[in-house]
Design a protein around this nucleic acid. Structure first.
Lengths: 211, 211
DNA sequence: ACCTGAACACCGTTCAAGT
DNA sequence: ACCTGAACACCGTTCAAGT
């Protein structure tokens, strides 16, 4: 048996690195939320002195941006060149949703606080542009249409992640009196798919009248 | 000329009240953002001791919720019973957008942090439910459809308020090389209206196939 | 009833000093 | 080059004491 060094002086097995700091921050965020992340707690979780972090990262905001970028990089989707664009956009959206569900606290934060979370070189944006192009969206309209799709997807996901979607869809229609109460946990999958189908149908009809 | 009392002991003309605290908080939020709001600064702006606030308000979170509720109460929209539901939903959305533009920092915060920001008795929700009912949405689907409309509107507004919409819609399509850069400030009005039109069209076609 | 000063347990970050 | 302790300028909130 080795003797454990006294608490607080235990040596790190791994040297402090930028990537290691982001990974530890992500663990804390997944567990307790972005607002509970503290440079001091982050350092403690790495067995480091709080001030040591500042040799690898300029400040807390950079940590949050770094974590968001790291997670964004993990996004993967398969490209189905031959499938209809409706199917492809559905797949893209659900793949993105899967990532959002893996790190809900971080993603909810990123959607609302980091306007540059989705970048032009990101696979999400590249795929989206390719799909809309394949669907026949004119180049002149493509940025606006892509922006609208992004906004709708992140908007519905935000509402889902923070519970608003669930609350709204359990409200009974206020005009009638004899309805039963909605089930305690209404189907969020359903509302997400509904939103997706609705904008896809809307885009379909826009493309039909254009061409 | 009256002699001003020395700095820091100037007497309040108005006694401290819950509503007065919310109003002062809103002024600070409009000016500097939610994250800059501090119980201590809030007290200073009211010429009060920081601790005096706690006799009218339980804590900072209650202040934020109170401010959000106060602003939410200000929402007004006219009811055009006779207009087609497409027109009515457009008007409801733009009225809501007007309110969001009046207090962008607070609304962006509320959308992402307060799942219960839109409540069942709020005029926004009541109007939305009435319009969808008039449009012929079956009662059984109404909560889900209303939730989807809420999520899309708040989602697009969030993206607009935090600048993401503008950034996304200025990205040039990544596949082509010879495009000119998008104009520095692309038309957000346009993207908002585009999103609105797209979900309205999507809903239209869903209602058509239902009936 | 309403207000207040002191205090507690935290923050992020700077800086001079150590190895 | 990397780490660290002390310190600074803040936070939200509790509590005992004042009027």
């Amino acid at each position: 048996m080795e003797k454990k060094p006294p608490r607080g002086t235990r040596k790190r097995e791994v040297p402090l690195t930028e990537a290691g700091i982001y990974a530890a921050a992500l663990r804390l965020i997944d567990a307790d939320g972005v607002e509970a992340l503290t440079m001091r707690k982050l350092a403690t979780s790495l067995d480091a002195n709080p001030m040591s972090l500042y040799h690898h990262v300029p400040n807390k905001d950079a940590v949050l941006r770094g974590v968001a970028r790291m997670v964004g990089t993990q996004f993967r989707t398969v490209t189905l060149e031959d499938a209809p664009w409706q199917e492809r956009i559905r797949l893209l959206a659900t793949d993105f949703r899967t990532l959002a569900h893996r790190h809900p606290k971080l993603m909810a934060y990123s959607f609302s606080h980091q306007a540059d979370f989705i970048q032009p070189e990101d696979p999400f944006w590249v795929s989206l542009a390719a799909i809309l192009d394949a669907a026949g969206v004119p180049h002149s309209e493509l940025p606006q249409i892509a922006a609208l799709v992004c906004a709708v997807i992140t908007g519905v996901l935000t509402a889902e992640l923070n519970g608003a979607l669930n609350q709204w869809s359990s409200l009974k229609p206020p005009t009638v009196g004899e309805d039963v109460l909605a089930p305690p946990d209404s189907d969020e999958n359903g509302v997400f798919r509904l939103a997706l189908d609705t904008i896809i149908t809307g885009l379909e009809s826009r493309l039909a009248t254009d061409g």
